[in-house]
């Protein structure tokens, strides 16, 4: 029964009952993150289910982006950043000695706050990942990969006739979908989104949210958002972060209607944040 639910384009109503039993894709236990001497995350435990949208909410500086970046080891690129604790994906330790972060980042795609297409053509933007990973051998294969990724990102119809135009010439919302297509083209298992709509207007935001809901069927999606309305709209699970700690994790429905912690209810009702 749980299996059926996780694959159906489940309306949010069912999330309350389905969330608990889904396959755990990423499991975090006792995660502490330090930037130099400053500790940014304290003892984070979390199970992130597969083929579900998990939203991280919380006030600025609460550590939600930090935790997101732990899952594809982007924190490695920050000088002085240190991660303690265990994060596993499908049971595999992401911080194991032998694990190459390059391979991990091919399995865990990421979309950033500000659309950051490469200053190259639309085609080259999408083809870059598959090319460096050797995912397409011939030009025809690459064309197919690019087309599929752009179609999945809902951008194909808008750009099919101008693939050679620069990606930076698209509108903000189109750029963000291009960046999602670029991430999808590498065929990741998880897509991390760090406030993907914060630089977009409401119409572009709605399109991205629709897209996220479609992508949920194939990917494990984690989204950091400042908009509680967005978290309520797109996610099935929600985690509330405060001062570097996870205050509450649960089904989105429960968090928004019946939070256990007063800090959560205060934040949700707009008393702080």
């Amino acid at each position: 029964m749980t299996d059926n639910l996780s694959h159906a384009p489940a309306p949010a109503v069912t999330a309350a009952s389905s969330g608990r039993a889904q396959n755990v894709k990423i499991r975090a236990r006792g995660v502490n993150v330090f930037y130099g001497a400053k500790q940014a995350l304290f003892d984070v435990d979390m199970d992130i289910p597969d083929r579900t949208v998990t939203a991280f909410i919380g006030p600025s500086g609460c550590g939600k982006s930090t935790f997101l970046r732990c899952m594809n080891r982007m924190n490695d690129t920050i000088v002085g950043a240190r991660v303690e604790g265990a994060i596993t994906m499908d049971g595999e330790d992401l911080y194991a000695k032998g694990l190459d972060p390059v391979l991990l980042r091919a399995r865990v795609g990421m979309v950033f706050q500000k659309p950051n297409p490469f200053p190259k053509s639309i085609y080259e933007n999408v083809a870059y990942g598959p090319r460096i990973h050797g995912l397409a051998r011939t030009k025809a294969e690459m064309d197919h990969v690019v087309e599929t990724a752009l179609k999945k990102a809902g951008l194909w119809d808008e750009v099919a006739d101008r693939l050679s135009h620069p990606g930076t010439g698209l509108s903000g919302g189109q750029q963000q979908r291009l960046v999602i297509a670029r991430a999808i083209a590498v065929r990741p298992e998880v897509i991390l989104m760090d406030e993907p709509c914060s630089a977009l207007d409401p119409i572009a935001t709605a399109r991205i949210e629709e897209l996220i809901d479609e992508l949920r069927r194939d990917y494990c999606i984690v989204i950091v958002t400042h908009s509680m309305a967005q978290a309520a709209r797109v996610s099935q699970k929600t985690a509330f972060f405060h001062m570097g700690r996870v205050v509450e994790v649960g089904d989105t429905e429960t968090i928004f209607t019946n939070p256990r912690d007063t800090r959560t209810s205060d934040y949700i009702t707009g008393r702080f944040g």
């Binding site: 390059v102 980042r105 500000k114 950051n116 670029r182």
Partner: peptide, 23 residues
């Protein structure tokens, strides 16, 4: 060169050298 370009390449699984010399 904005750091977002480096991040974009690294997040796609480019190695440091690929990100630097490719972008």
């Amino acid at each position: 060169v904005p750091p977002s370009i480096r991040e974009a390449a690294l997040a796609l699984g480019a190695s440091k050298t690929q990100a630097v010399f490719g972008h």
